[in-house]
Nucleic acid binder design. Structure first.
Length: 862
DNA sequence: CCGTCCCGCCAGAAC
DNA sequence: GTTCTGGCGGGACGG
């Protein structure tokens, strides 16, 4: 904690006060920065020179009471605080910050510390690790954070808003109301958006539990405020304009004066901290009206990282992009994902992962032993460990899928129809979905979490989450050769970034919960009604497009959660066939979960956890199916492919179609094997949870699973190999990258492959039935929603949707993409996630964004 | 008088 | 119930 402060001079030492150290720091700081100097001068240094030190000391130790207001200012306090920590802390060291200690040492009330911490947290200079604790990150994440904030700000059109507001103020002057129009426009366009807390890639995590506070308004406000600077050309933002923009977003209307005043007060609080950070300086702008207080950005303007981020954020997020673009995005995502898969490497790279792995394993053990326990802590760990697994799984899956596909195609042309929803595009979709989801989720809350790549864990989480959401929505179609993935966005929202991030968040937050077991059950039982309101909403929204963005978004998070869960669920279902409901602890989830943070608004949601998400996911699917049919939406149809694969068509009004290589197919293993029951049944879910994957073999599950599945699904496939599959994919799939990826994975896969629980169970049933009929489908199948039409599905579902089969393998069609999707889907949440993750650590985040963008785009299009 | 913004009440979330 | 967080706005301070 205090190391920084260490050195002190005699004087300080002499001074008994706790301040001493601080004062030294101050001194240093002031020396370093003019701003500070000035400030301090005012406070302490008045006398002059050398004395400054003395003065400071004196003042400080003097008494708190005596101190003038200035001496007690938040800015000065922040300086003191900052002086205690290095700008670029050694991550290896313990950078814990204990609020109590800080408050005591700085001799201030805790309340004040919160103000500082909230602003610092908004810049990711600290992250909350637990109740009274924060972890100091210093400026190590600053560039990335600013880059992201800039992007988010751009997406929100802050610069435009600022201009509009300025015009209003100036032009019309205060009196005219005309502004309203502008405002309205803004609201309309932006409306949804609102922001979310933007999270950063690596950081996050912290204590899941802790994260949820409802608002975090100061944090969000701080980020928005910073965005304004980053977005504006002049780098100067007047206080009133900033206040208005911030007010507008939060709540429209009027609230006026008081509200404005309050906002301004807060802005001063934030500004003081930012000034201490030397990111802004106070200035004055003079317009018609006169001189107004304003702040000028004096921090960094360009961020190297941006590229990456952009790739993630901007690209994906970009809302505007056309569908085609979305495609591109997808590809990008896929690439990223794949690359990440290169993952293993990445794994190795990330030390954190390695470290985590152990802990994760431990956690898993714990989890297994104690199903009910949530394990927040483990999450992060588990997540980390999962990554590799996931990666492996993905690879394995890819391979398997390819093999299967090849095999199936070659050997069995049988119709996959049996399977409910098979979608080639699964993997892709998943990815996309994942991406999208986040966005949606966030919209509601307004906080965007960026969890980018940096941390694998987090990324992992993201993917899954992302995937899950997407999936439900999307239905890949494999018509002929054209594959598309459709992403449904409930509502398109402007905030692309937000969405994605949220997803990630959700995932992390999800971490898991005990609930899963229950919820799943319930859901399965009631798929429609209860379980997933979210799902429905999403679906609806997507399909119908009506739903409010926020809702959708929320849903997304769920999805995310679900995604991993889905995998599990699938597994569970499989197992369910066997039957067992267990409590499940989702070890795997834990993996995903990364606690990241989830700042999302609905922190709670996050917590809900994987289980829920899974449930939701399932539900969604079901719902989706149902809803589609019921609502008239067209959900996805299962169309028999030549090979017998089913294609799902989704009708999603709002959704976007993204061409994907093949989309993942979704198959419903269960349907075959267990038939509809599984789907319906929550049982499966249970089983899922219990199963294996999650619980029992956390780590292994992911990786192993894949392979296993493959085997199970199609032993044959193995033989064939990817080539065939590939070919097929190629036809369909557009992205070579994916293919490559898959190929690689295949190779990888071969390597790893322990069987998975999933696989096993499924094997018997499915293998036979499924295999033949649905080569592709089987493999990849992820499933999806299907509409009634689908033959196979019926068993599963009429509910359609849900299906998710475990099958991971399927993916083939879509080539690379497909594979990935399948991974996601298939493998239990975790595995897929893992895959995602791998890629993702970095990519993941980005990926996420992409989807969002797509969504956005879609929306736009739609 | 007005820009700043300290201070701390108090509600809500987290234990 | 207690503790932690943090929204919020009265009203003081300083120019």
């Amino acid at each position: 904690m205090g190391p920084l402060t260490t050195p002190k001079k005699g004087r300080e030492v002499g001074s008994v006060d706790p301040w001493t150290p601080t004062s030294n720091l101050k001194m240093l700081i002031s020396a370093a920065s003019p701003d500070i100097r000035n400030r301090e001068k005012e406070l302490c240094m008045d006398h002059g020179g050398q004395e400054g030190l003395d003065a400071i000391q004196d003042t400080e130790h003097g008494e708190s009471e005596k101190m003038s207001r200035k001496e007690k200012s938040l800015g000065l306090l922040c300086h003191k605080f900052l002086a205690r920590y290095p700008d670029y802390p050694n991550p290896a060291l313990n950078n814990d910050i204990c609020l109590d200690d800080v408050a005591t040492e700085l001799n201030v009330e805790r309340r004040r510390i919160y103000d500082i911490m909230n602003v610092l947290e908004s810049l990711h200079m600290v992250s909350r690790s637990a109740k009274n604790r924060y972890i100091w990150h210093g400026r190590s994440k600053m560039a990335q954070t600013l880059a992201i904030l800039k992007q988010v700000g751009e997406e929100h059109r802050y610069s435009q808003q600022m201009q509009q507001i300025q015009q209003r103020l100036l032009d019309i002057d205060s009196e005219e109301k005309e502004n309203t129009e502008a405002v309205d426009l803004e609201n309309e366009e932006q409306g949804q958006k609102e922001l979310f807390f933007v999270e950063l890639p690596g950081v996050e995590f912290k204590a899941a539990s802790v994260n949820s506070r409802k608002d975090k308004s100061l944090r969000v406000m701080s980020q928005k405020f910073v965005m304004l600077f980053l977005v504006s050309n002049s780098r100067v933002v007047s206080l009133d304009v900033a206040a208005k923009i911030l007010i507008g977003e939060d709540q429209d209307a009027d609230p006026d004066k008081n509200k404005f005043k309050t906002k301004v007060r807060r802005l001063y609080d934030i500004a003081n901290v930012l000034r201490s950070l030397k990111l802004i300086e106070k200035v004055h702008v003079t317009d018609k009206r006169g001189r107004k207080p304003a702040f000028e950005w004096v921090g960094p303007v360009e961020f190297p990282q941006i590229k990456d981020l952009e790739s993630f954020t901007s690209e994906c997020p970009s809302k505007k992009k056309h569908v085609l673009e979305s495609r591109a995005c997808v590809d990008n995502c896929a690439k990223k994902l794949f690359t990440s898969p290169g993952a293993k490497r990445s794994f190795t790279r990330h030390p954190s992962l390695v470290k985590l792995a152990k802990s994760i394993q431990d956690d898993r053990r714990k989890i297994n032993s104690a199903p009910s326990s949530p394990v927040k802590n483990s999450f992060s760990d588990s997540s980390n460990s999962d990554f590799p697994n996931k990666m492996a799984q993905l690879a394995a899956i890819c391979k398997i899928q390819l093999d299967q596909e090849s095999v199936t195609k070659a050997n069995d042309p049988k119709p996959a129809p049996a399977e409910v929803g098979t979608t080639a595009s699964n993997s892709v979709e998943l990815l996309q979905a994942a991406l999208l989801t986040p966005t949606q989720d966030f919209t509601d809350n307004t906080t965007v979490h960026l969890t980018p790549h940096t941390q694998p864990t987090g990324s992992v989480a993201y993917f899954p989450a992302q995937c899950s959401p997407m999936i439900p929505v999307l239905l890949p179609q494999q018509r002929g050769s054209i594959p598309y993935a459709i992403y449904l966005q409930p509502s398109l929202r402007t905030n692309s970034l937000a969405r994605p991030q949220p997803t990630s968040l959700a995932v992390r937050s999800m971490t898991f919960e005990d609930k899963t077991g229950q919820s799943p059950t319930i859901k399965s039982a009631n798929k429609e009604s209860d379980s997933n309101p979210f799902m429905f909403k999403r679906l609806r929204s997507d399909s119908a497009s009506e739903s409010s963005p926020s809702k959708t978004k929320r849903t997304d998070p769920n999805f995310k959660d679900t995604s991993p869960k889905l995998c599990e669920i699938l597994q569970a279902r499989f197992k369910a066939h066997r039957s067992h409901p267990l409590s499940c602890r989702p070890s795997p989830r834990a993996l995903h979960l990364d606690p990241e943070f989830v700042n999302t608004p609905g922190g709670a949601v996050v917590n809900q956890t994987l289980e829920q998400s899974l449930e939701t996911f399932l539900d969604r699917e079901d719902k989706a199916v149902n809803s589609d049919s019921e609502a008239g939406l067209t959900p996805v149809r299962a169309v028999p492919l030549t090979s017998g694969q089913l294609q799902t068509e989704t009708l999603v009004p709002a959704g976007y179609l993204i061409p994907i290589s093949q989309q993942s197919l979704i198959s419903y293993k269960e349907s075959k094997g267990s038939g509809g029951e599984s789907n319906k049944a929550s049982t499966p879910t249970y089983s899922i949870y219990q199963t294996p994957t999650a619980g029992s073999r956390p780590a292994a599950s992911a990786q192993e699973i894949t392979p296993t599945n493959l085997r199970l699904y199609k032993p044959t496939a193995a033989t064939d190999s990817p080539h065939i599959t590939q070919q097929a994919h190629h036809l369909h799939s557009p992205s070579p990258a994916i293919l490559n990826f898959t190929l690689q994975n295949l190779g990888l896969i071969s390597g790893s492959s322990p069987g998975n629980a999933f696989a096993t169970p499924q094997t018997p049933e499915r293998t036979n039935g499924l295999a033949s009929p649905l080569a592709l489908q089987q493999r990849g199948m992820v499933f999806i929603k299907p509409v009634s039409p689908v033959p196979v599905q019926q068993s599963v579902s009429p509910h359609p949707v849900t299906l998710i089969t475990l099958q991971q393998p399927v993916m083939t069609t879509p080539k690379g993409t497909a594979l990935p999707h399948s991974f996601f889907q298939t493998p239990v949440p975790v595995s897929p996630l893992a895959a995602m993750v791998t890629t993702g650590g970095h990519a993941a985040t980005k990926t996420v964004y992409i989807p969002q963008r797509k969504l956005d785009v879609a929306t736009a299009d739609s």
